[in-house]
Design a protein around this nucleic acid. Structure first.
Lengths: 336, 336
DNA sequence: CTGAAAGCGCTTACAG
DNA sequence: CTGAAAGCGCTTACAG
């Protein structure tokens, strides 16, 4: 199976490769009508399809971007990826998705592989341990957009797409308070200074409680590796005076709470009110339907793609790089 | 920001490009120790990273594969994609994911784009309307693996990874019967002769009923566009003698049933027993926990990747192409 | 053990 | 309006 190249088409149509190239790229201005037709039919007959890689090599653009997610198991990542793909495909860009699995080593390897593959830019949910690498890339003016995490200790500006995380937590706390709950707890995965979203949510949670003049009982804020979540929840709910409402930092924390609740036959919201950040797929038909704080994940993904492609396509896009905050939305259902 | 090429490294290390190339590709056999070291440090100093695209052009292999899913909203697709990515990354292959959105036009465009991008092979969940295209590819000996759907009317063999769909339906029916239910219904999205998985499940459902000597009441097998599912379910449940158990053909059908149940305050399993094919994420902590028939999605994805990479990597892999069936598993929980 | 040369399939000034 | 030539960054026989 010999592959058909531009040279074959040129020969078949009795023109030069240059002319075929012009044709393929839609530059018809100076092209004779007949030439055009001859080339068109040669392409047709030979079933020629251009080799994009060769073009990319010459043009130094692969029309491909890379997306690195910290952990593909988060519903948020999935939704964001989907939005990025939709957006990119409309601009004829392809996307290569890499799952770092919360592993900085993997993340680093992926960044290197993607660059070696000449992707035109990267959208990343950084794990937090490769900040210098990202900084380097930015210094080289390599197009990059970060999601969900702010690069700390940097005077370099980098486009970052983020939820207004404090507000997300506040929305939940406000809802709880309004419903009359005062003993409010929170479950989160391990905190780490690099994990912007988590930290902001916890801060937002604390602030919101303060705003309402509520003191956070010790033992009400549980930060734990999800593998130990059941035991941790058990401890929290066994306090002399356990929380009557609980906020799940993200979808995975929510699932842990749901598992716990089911095991212990806890009644929602009567025994325990519940709100989760991230609008999980089953929220609306769960029994009871789950109140959530939704992130506009699709819009956020679109924005990230838009920022990246703009940076790639527009010559010296001196648009100052900034943090783009998105508004969370309370989806009031039955669990709160 | 000038990019560093092999020529730069060669110059810096005072050797030829050929030698650098040997080094980069790990062919040290005939290389002097000093030469090796000089090159190594030159690469280090210049922070050289090879341009994989250029290599690919020469070697005619992009170490990238494409995955086209009919509809990325199915949990099954997501799980399969994840497995494919894991498997490929271990072999240093990249994967480009494309979502055809059940749209044959899109599917076709993607196939063409992927080929133009020189991906080394494609794993596809075909929509069913581009069968000729796939057939052509196979005839050209282009590596391809199909998921979930068999290409009909073909004497060409093509590697296909499939669930034993009849058995999946049978497992569910057997469970219902064993629990004492006889009036058993089923909800499915629209059927189409091309949609192997759906057809096989429906056939399996019918056969299993027969095996148990149960006649399928008219109105118990509801095939509908999911947008009209609520009305359709309503009709089914309003029959003079409505089903007492229902099988959901896939995750999306299940969700429709769950929505319906919630709206109508139907009690599971007392009013209506329920089993869904596809092991949805929330099955275990839903109330009641949902009995499902699980597909080994991860294994199936791995198998698809394995078959494809084998075909790509191994010269004339004359392994006969076949249909690989996977065993479904009943996850008995509380809804049946 | 190492290098010169050709070539992968394109694009792009430039000349005519 | 069209073509010859150089070049993108590699790899790979082949020669020495």
């Amino acid at each position: 199976m010999k592959t058909i190249t531009m040279a074959d088409v040129a020969q078949h149509a009795n023109v030069s490769k240059s002319t075929v190239s012009q044709f393929v790229n839609g530059r018809y201005e100076y092209m004779g009508k007949q030439t055009r037709e001859r080339i068109a039919s040669a392409i047709e007959e030979l079933e020629y399809s251009p080799n994009i890689m060769a073009r990319s090599l010459k043009q130094k653009s692969s029309t491909t971007i890379g997306v690195i997610v910290a952990n593909i198991l988060h519903i948020f990542s999935t939704q964001v990826i989907r939005a990025i793909e939709d957006y990119c495909n409309e601009s004829d860009f392809h996307v290569i998705v890499c799952n770092a699995d919360d592993n900085p080593e993997k993340e680093k390897r992926y960044i290197e592989m993607l660059r070696a593959k000449q992707v035109d830019g990267i959208i990343s949910f950084p794990t937090g341990a490769n900040n210098q690498l990202y900084q380097q890339l930015v210094e080289q003016d390599y197009p990059i957009v970060l999601m969900d995490r702010i690069l700390p200790d940097t005077d370099i500006n980098i486009n970052t797409v983020l939820l207004d995380n404090r507000k997300a937590a506040k929305l939940a706390v406000d809802e709880f308070v309004q419903k009359g709950y005062e003993r409010i707890g929170m479950l989160t995965p391990p905190l780490d200074e690099h994990l912007t979203a988590r930290n902001e949510r916890v801060h937002g949670f604390r602030e919101a409680l303060e705003d309402h003049g509520i003191v956070l009982e010790s033992g009400y804020l549980v930060s734990t590796d999800l593998k130990e979540a059941q035991a941790a929840l058990n401890r929290m709910m066994s306090l002399k005076s356990p929380p009557e409402a609980i906020l799940a930092l993200n979808d995975r924390s929510l699932v842990e709470i749901l598992n716990y609740i089911k095991k212990d036959q806890i009644n929602i919201p009567d025994d325990l009110a519940l709100i989760g950040i991230d609008d999980v797929t089953f929220a609306s038909f769960y029994s009871p339907a789950l109140t959530t704080v939704a992130q506009p994940a699709y819009k956020m993904g679109e924005k990230a793609a838009e920022l990246l492609l703009a940076k790639i396509l527009i010559e010296n896009s001196t648009s100052e790089e900034v943090v783009h905050r998105f508004e969370p939305e309370l989806m009031r259902r039955e669990s709160s």
